[in-house]
Amino acid sequence: MKTEYITPFLESAATVIEQVCNVATLRGELELKEVSLREDHVWIMVGLVGQFSGDVLFGIHREVALKIVSAMMGGFPIADLDEMGKSAISELGNMISGNASTLLYSRGVQIDISPPILVDESAPPTFSGKALSIPLTLGEMGQMEVQVLVIN
């Protein structure tokens, strides 16, 4: 699995989060591991097709997701991830993935992305295989995890 597939998603996530939340980001260590969806997290899944196929998953602890949605809504306090909050956090995944696909294109890799899907913990999709995974620290807000699962 090529690490150049995950780099544009990390670059894009850092840029988008820094702009939307006004926080500095810091990358953690890259790992190759089994795809896993941790509990108490909001998972945004975006499908990838083109020169390679797969999925990118953004995992955000619920408390961090509430902070991000609050920042996206101008600092308005958010207590629960209602439909508006789910829409906002899905749009975050769309912004990151759209920017990443532009970065990939500028590097000679053409992909298309699907609309983001919030993955429900009660009925998560089944994944098999290994993903490139890296945590991204969002200032004092907490962490987000980026997992890229490439099928071909």
Rank of each mutant, 00 (worst) to 15 (best):
A100R: 14
G139W: 05
T15G: 10
T137M: 06
L81P: 00
F127Q: 13
E83N: 06
Q147N: 09
I17E: 13
Y5P: 00
A24T: 14
M45P: 02
V119C: 05
Q19D: 13
F9C: 01
F52K: 12
F52C: 10
M72N: 02
D55C: 07
F127N: 09
I60F: 02
F76W: 06
R62E: 11
L92Y: 08
S97N: 02
V146D: 04
V23C: 08
I96G: 06
A123W: 06
L66R: 10
F127T: 07
A88H: 07
L10A: 05
V56L: 07
T137H: 08
L81R: 03
S70L: 04
M141R: 10
L57T: 00
L66H: 04
I117D: 01
S106A: 15
L104H: 02
P116C: 12
I117E: 03
T126H: 07
G75A: 06
E11A: 13
K33S: 07
G50A: 08
N94M: 10
G108S: 15
M73K: 05
G108P: 10
V35E: 02
K33N: 03
S53N: 13
V64E: 00
S53E: 08
I78F: 01
A13E: 04
D40H: 08
V109K: 14
P115Y: 03
I89A: 01
Q110H: 12
A123I: 15
G142C: 03
P124T: 02
T137E: 07
I17T: 13
A123S: 15
S12E: 13
Q147C: 02
N99I: 15
Q51D: 15
R107L: 12
H61C: 00
M84K: 03
E31W: 01
L103K: 09
V23L: 08
K67G: 07
Q19T: 12
A123E: 14
V46Q: 05
T15N: 13
R27K: 08
V119Y: 05
I6N: 07
P8V: 04
P135M: 03
I134P: 04
E39V: 10
D82I: 00
S101Q: 15
E31K: 08
S97G: 05
N94Y: 12
V46M: 04
F76T: 06
V56C: 05
Q51L: 13
L92S: 04
I17W: 13
G98S: 15
Q19I: 11
F127R: 15
D82M: 01
L10V: 11
I17P: 11
P125Q: 09
L138R: 08
E140T: 12
L30Y: 00
D55V: 11
I78Y: 01
F9K: 06
I117N: 05
L138A: 12
S114I: 05
V109R: 08
P115L: 15
I68N: 01
T15S: 14
I6P: 00
K67W: 01
S114F: 00
Q143N: 13
G28C: 03
K33E: 09
V16H: 15
I44K: 00
Q51E: 15
P135D: 01
A24H: 14
G142N: 06
V56Y: 08
V64Y: 01
S90V: 05
P124E: 04
G59I: 03
A123Q: 14
N99T: 12
S128L: 09
G54A: 06
G129R: 11
N22K: 14
A88M: 14
T3I: 10
N22G: 11
M141T: 10
I60H: 00
F76S: 07
M72E: 08
